[in-house]
Design a protein around this nucleic acid. Structure first.
Length: 618
RNA sequence: GCGCCCGUAGCUCAGUGGAUAGAGUAUUUGCUUGCGGAGCAAAGGGUCGCUGGUUCGAGUCCAGCCGGGCGCGCCA
């Protein structure tokens, strides 16, 4: 198995420390010291005090002398600093290995730890006939970054855009179109999808709410006195209203392949896909599969059989079929009992989201035998996924199931002065199209600024502005931990400075610019380097660990943070050190150019892993 | 009511049970005869929501409160 210098160093250190202390190698944790500490790696000795009956300080001193002569080639010395055993790199040796790795390999940082494993990433998943929301943008951007990172670990990755193209929604759409719609007018409209959305919204408000279920525990008034902002949300629909019954029947007709309903459904899809493709093109995101929920409907009978054979199905008195989780003594990942069953078939024997997700998982298992299926879906669905995963495990699915949940996008409500969910009805909403085009326009403004005297020809400005603007938006999302709710802020979203995509792109472009004036040649001579360069070498060496960490925790923001640290260190170095300088020795200049190349490579590669492109100039 | 997520600088956020809690932004001040200033250097700014507990050691783990968000069968 391929092992990078930094991992090899740490594992060799752990092994010699283990030998001297009697610990298992796995128990020895070699850490990176805090910033400001004069050491490169360390081993805290506190935990040994009990078993060795000595103070941590004594242990550290003892170990420092015992390890003399047994240290890895990349470590120059071990010394005690209070209760810590600190290690310092043998920089020239360490740097030589790192330079070798960056140069010899077109894919520095990649590993083969995931070789032979298939990972399915379920991402993006916009809904047909609805706007492409900012929430789906999050899923797209985070999912795409995960796809790329797992690929870098050697996994076979299937990025699957699980389109929301089936279900009762389409019954609602069909009913709405029949009652209030005009097909020809929609076709002619400049934005057909938003016309469809209007029909959907009208359906929701016509049906209205029944018992204001959502607020039943909060002591708010019931129907008739419901505050306007709580009206007609998805959860409050009166499921017994005539329109709802008509919609469920239309959805059932669709499931039974009724030609009229199928034709309308196909038309909705056609209109929506046109819009989606435009967005994906602009974002630079591609999928390996784009199977919507509808793709799994032929598998429904087989799925029901599968569940039945596992003996976990139960028919309820109302005729619906469920997996009765509360009766089965199963627990969710937090060890909580379930309160409601997993719905499999509705009273009218139609399918629900759950049915199609069960079928989908079965399909994926059969087709790819994945080691993991990763669902990149908002955190509001986490208890749903708890149920689904338990159902799938009960039925015998082998793959590890992971819900990489992310927070929702909140907007400031000026009335309440609180961060709240976006609301179309209150006009407190940001359309994705506006977001993307404003970001690109802002980048373009900078490119057109005459004071910057950039040497960029007009013809390539559009593409560069797209790369920068989209980079800003993607980084804004990927730069922070995904679990948190995102507070939408135009300034932060469009920021081109500081902790931002364009800053990283800018540093990568600067590195390229230096190299275009003086390319690195031959081999670096690390004996010429000094204290100014070692921190950059150390950062470059850490890159493989960061990729592993992102995959380990499904958290792309670790890559974002690392790249910022690297870019920032390079920025300082660049400012304080003249790289192309006739007064430095040719060996030193050339070695520095190799360093610039290594930094540039990692920046560009790291951005690539986040799905962010690097322009040639900016 | 039950469950999950979140609470760290004015604002937006990082933070592997380990050494003096860090960035961006905003504010203030410097830096360009130079490889690109979308930059660099520096200053000020903290009761890590509160109270207990576990631990040699807690922003991090546990419990209970407080505050915000989300969810709790035939929507997706």
């Amino acid at each position: 198995m391929k092992m990078h210098t930094i991992d090899r160093t740490i594992s060799e250190l752990a092994s010699v420390v283990a030998q001297e202390t009697g610990l298992e190698t796995a128990q020895v944790t070699i850490l990176a010291p805090k910033a400001g500490v004069d050491a490169d790696l360390c081993f805290p000795c506190f935990a040994l005090a009990g078993t060795l009956k000595k103070s941590p300080g004594e242990i550290a001193t003892d170990l420092a002398s015992k390890l003399q002569g047994k240290l890895p080639d990349t470590i120059a010395k071990a010394e005690a600093a209070g209760p810590y055993l600190n290690f310092k790199y043998n920089w020239p040796v360490f740097a030589n290995f790192v330079f070798g790795e960056v140069a010899d390999d077109a894919t520095y940082g990649y590993s083969d730890t995931g070789k032979g494993k298939t990972v399915v990433v379920d991402l993006s998943a916009p809904n047909i006939a609805k706007p492409f929301s900012v929430g789906h943008l999050r899923s797209t951007v985070i999912g795409d970054a995960l796809v790329r990172h797992f690929r870098a670990q050697g996994c076979t990755v299937i990025g699957d855009n699980h389109l929301g193209d089936w279900g009762t929604t389409f019954g609602k759409m069909i009913v709405a179109l029949r009652h209030w719609g005009d097909r020809a007018a929609i076709e002619k409209s400049s934005d057909p999808v938003s016309e469809l959305t209007k029909l959907y919204v009208r359906f929701q408000s016509e049906v209205g709410s029944k018992d204001n279920k959502k607020n039943r525990h909060k002591g708010l008034p019931a129907q008739g006195e419901v505050p306007a902002e709580l009206e007609a949300t998805e959860e409050q629909l009166d499921v017994t209203s005539p329109l709802m019954i008509e919609a469920r029947d239309a959805a059932l007709a669709l499931e039974q392949d009724s030609p009229e309903e199928i034709a309308l459904w196909k038309w909705f899809i056609e209109l929506s896909l046109k819009m989606f493709e435009k967005i994906y093109h602009q974002l630079g995101v591609k999928f390996d599969e784009q199977l919507g929920e509808s793709a799994y409907r032929t598998l429904i009978p087989e799925t029901i059989e599968w569940l039945k054979d596992s003996g976990i199905l139960k028919t309820e008195p109302d005729g619906s079929i469920v997996v009765p989780l509360p009766d089965m003594d199963v627990r969710d990942r937090h060890d909580n009992a379930f309160e409601t069953p997993l719905m499999v078939l509705k009273t009218n024997s139609g399918t629900v989201y759950e049915t199609r997700d069960l079928a989908c998982a079965l399909y994926r298992e059969k087709r790819w035998q994945p080691a993991k299926i990763i669902y990149v879906v908002g955190s509001e669905q986490s208890s749903y996924f708890d149920k689904l995963f338990v159902g799938l495990k009960l039925a015998g699915l082998k793959a590890d199931l992971v819900h990489t949940e992310f927070g929702m996008v909140l907007m400031m409500n000026p009335a309440s002065e609180k961060w709240e969910k976006m609301s179309t009805r209150q006009g407190r909403v940001v359309l994705l199209e506006d977001l993307l085009s404003q970001a690109v326009a802002k980048a373009r403004e900078v490119l057109d600024d005459p004071e910057r005297h950039l040497h960029i020809d007009e013809g390539s400005k559009d593409e560069i502005a797209r790369i920068i603007g989209i980079g800003a938006i993607k980084f804004n999302d990927l730069g922070q931990a995904r679990q948190r709710d995102v507070r939408f802020d135009w300034d932060a979203m469009l920021s081109l400075n500081g902790y931002s995509g364009p800053y990283l792109q800018y540093m990568a472009v600067r590195a390229k610019s230096v190299l275009s004036k003086a390319p690195a040649t031959g081999k670096p001579d690390v004996s010429t380097l000094g204290d100014k360069e070692w921190p950059l070498i150390e950062l470059v060496a850490r890159f493989p660990q960061v990729i592993a960490r992102v995959c380990d925790r499904y958290e792309p923001h670790h890559m974002a943070q690392y790249l910022y640290e690297l870019a920032s260190a390079f920025g300082s170095y660049y400012d304080g050190t003249r790289i192309i300088d006739p007064e430095t020795s040719p060996e030193l200049q050339n070695t520095r150019l190799h360093l610039v190349q290594a930094v540039g490579t990692v920046l560009e590669e790291g951005l690539q892993l986040l799905g962010i492109e690097t322009p040639e100039k900016m």
